[in-house]
Amino acid sequence: MSHSSPQSNVYALVAEYPTPEALLTAAEKVRDAGYKRVDALTPFPVHGIVEALGLPKSRMAALVFCAALFGAIGGFYLQVWLTTQQYPLTISGRPYFSWPNYIPVTFECMVLAAGLTAFFGMLIRNRLPRPYHPLFATRGIEASTTGKFMIVVESTDPKFDEKGTESFLRSTGAESVNAAPFDDFGRDQAADGAAK
């Protein structure tokens, strides 16, 4: 796992802002300056940050829709196959293919498939669970889940330059800028799951 800039021992620079508004303004500046490998860390979802940073739109909704469809068709087909082909029984004189009776289980299968896909799909697409991440070694990073708003610029960004980027981030109104140090473990991890 070789890394493109072995002279730098920095995974990313993390700039800290006091409010979501400051974060959004700064994020637009970062995007307009041409940084691509960026992210934000916030204690709660900040509306508009995805657009402000120019991140790609998520396709979770489509994924869950497909899962729901799969669950519904699968659940319905399971019952049709069992009651007409595999194990046909006459129950209260109903026809073998008594589809109104299959609706409740079809519905439950749809919800179950969609729900499981939503939860585990979110985790997998977010590359979680991941107990270690290079960012966790940054000074003051704990505040990102409790009250501070942060922008991350990764060192793999083509425009990244430790000194220049740091002063640029300060000019966007950051309260402080800290470097996330890179150990070998973190380097491998980052190369593995680039920018996820």
Partner: peptide
């Protein structure tokens, strides 16, 4: 916490699901 770090990409998917 499964390594949750409040990244913007994470929150986007989180909000949707």
């Amino acid at each position: 916490a499964l390594g949750w770090r409040g990244s913007a990409r994470h929150w986007q998917r989180y909000d949707i699901i």
